[in-house]
């Protein structure tokens, strides 16, 4: 099931809402916290939205495809910012070696001295986690870029 989702230029964004959550997915957060003890779990597992849905669609649905991420970045006036210039509210997109945007999140805190951003992101079906930039499952990355919406 999908919802009506558009960019600021009224271009449609393909999306998908899931509704079922299994016991494994529900309990998966505990397993992830064991692997990432520094990360803080913010919400329980949720099937409705994914990381890109959190970052670009206000947690309402899943955005799954690269073309839609590109469309949002272009239509909504996102420009890349360097690590030194990152501020809370900027977004980070993790890319695979092939350039696929495999994860994203919102910068919620920037440590001034070491320039280490703290990110709020959703890890697949699992819940939202607040974590430092590189403290994510191996599936995400290895590259990343920061963007700021300047409409």
């Amino acid at each position: 099931m999908s919802i009506r989702l558009e960019t600021s230029k009224r271009n449609g964004v393909t999306n998908f809402q899931d509704s079922e959550l299994s016991r494994f997915q529900h309990h998966g957060c505990k397993m992830l916290l064991q692997q990432h003890p520094q990360a803080r779990q913010r919400t329980q597992a949720c099937p409705v939205y994914n990381c890109h849905g959190l970052t670009f669609a206000c947690r309402r649905t899943k955005v799954l495809y690269r073309k839609d991420i590109d469309l949002i970045l272009n239509d909504d006036g996102y420009r890349e910012v360097s690590l030194e210039d990152v501020l809370p509210g900027d977004v980070v997109i993790y890319f695979s070696a092939e350039g696929d945007p495999n994860h994203s999140g919102i910068v919620v805190e920037m440590e001034d001295t070491l320039h280490v951003p703290r990110i709020c992101s959703k890890w697949g079906y699992a819940g939202e986690f607040v974590h430092v930039l590189h403290d994510v499952p191996n599936l995400y990355g290895p590259r990343h870029k920061f963007f700021r919406c300047e409409l």
Partner: peptide, 17 residues
């Protein structure tokens, strides 16, 4: 496998994962 399935945010990341 199950953890990869749970963590994948997109079809492409699941495939490569």
């Amino acid at each position: 496998l199950a953890q990869t399935y749970m963590l994948a945010n997109t079809p492409r990341s699941l495939f490569w994962g």
